[in-house]
């Protein structure tokens, strides 16, 4: 993979002396999924399975990431691109320590924080309470939470159309929920922040604000990973991009080069 070791532009120049925050070393991730109700889900076949001691047929193993290696440094924003099912989200979850690699290892500085669209907080609680709980769950002291909570709600913009902060989160639109979650997660300075498609959900105004926030986070010596299908937001926020295809690292380099190659494939 010539793209990675090639001294391409500013990345390789500034490599020396920089502090690595995430080292991914030949990682393979295999996870099991429940296929749900299938033809083999009748009581009789379940009994047969128990008697013959075979695994449930509705569980299938997926080899989602196949030997990916790279090193991320402080202050980098790295985009992850690739077609659906190429292992981007799985790789993020492995970095966050939520999925164990079957082979290889992920080393991180501090605790990476994963921000995903699907990661709902507590749906039956109000937005305000979710802000407080989310901040406490990230390990903030209570005084800081009290100070930051209004800012977070302000940043998320959920109160722009009436007082939504006091309503349960289940009443929010998916965009509002994602915005609030992004606002909560990005309120704390993370060493490593992993963002899964969150920037794509908000409206235009919020997108601009969140891109600004990602830049700030990166400047405060954090590393940001961004998974997105919108090459626009990757080009705007990341200077380095990793292209995954079928669980294999296809290309790793400056965003413009990788995105051009990805679009021209």
């Amino acid at each position: 993979m010539a793209e990675q070791t090639q001294p391409a532009g500013k990345i390789a120049v500034t490599d020396a002396g920089r502090i690595p925050t995430v080292v991914v070393d030949d990682v393979h991730v295999i996870y099991r999924i429940h296929k749900g109700a299938t033809s083999g889900s009748s009581p009789v076949s379940a009994l047969k399975r128990i008697v013959s001691r075979t695994n449930a047929p509705n569980i299938r193993e997926v080899h989602a990431v196949k030997g990916v290696s790279f090193t991320a440094y402080q202050g980098e924003a790295i985009g992850l691109i690739g077609s659906n099912g190429s292992g981007k989200s799985t790789l993020l979850r492995a970095i966050a320590g939520l999925l164990p690699p079957a082979r290889g290892a992920v080393y991180t500085l501090g605790q990476p924080s994963l921000l995903g669209v699907n990661a709902a907080l507590l749906n039956d609680l109000s937005g305000e309470r979710n802000v407080v709980l989310g901040c406490l769950a990230m390990g903030m002291p209570p005084e800081e939470v009290k100070r930051l909570a209004p800012e977070i709600i302000e940043f998320s913009g959920i109160n722009e159309r009436g007082d939504f902060a006091s309503l349960p989160m289940r009443t929010y639109s998916s965009g509002m929920g994602a915005r609030l979650r992004f606002a909560i997660s990005s309120a704390k300075k993370h060493d490593v922040l992993l963002i899964d498609e969150a920037l794509a959900t908000g409206d235009r105004k919020f997108r601009a604000r969140s891109e600004q926030r990602v830049r700030e986070l990166r400047d405060s010596a954090g590393t940001v990973f961004l998974v997105s299908h919108s090459l626009g937001s990757i080009r705007d926020t990341c200077e380095r991009t990793i292209w995954l295809e079928g669980g294999v690292l296809k290309m790793d380099g400056p965003t413009n080069e990788v995105c051009d190659a990805y679009e021209g494939k």
Partner: peptide
């Protein structure tokens, strides 16, 4: 090697 690099900068295995 990645493991040496991680050790040098005090990185820890994710989710340990």
């Amino acid at each position: 090697t990645p493991a040496q690099l991680a050790q040098r900068y005090g990185l820890r295995v994710a989710g340990e």
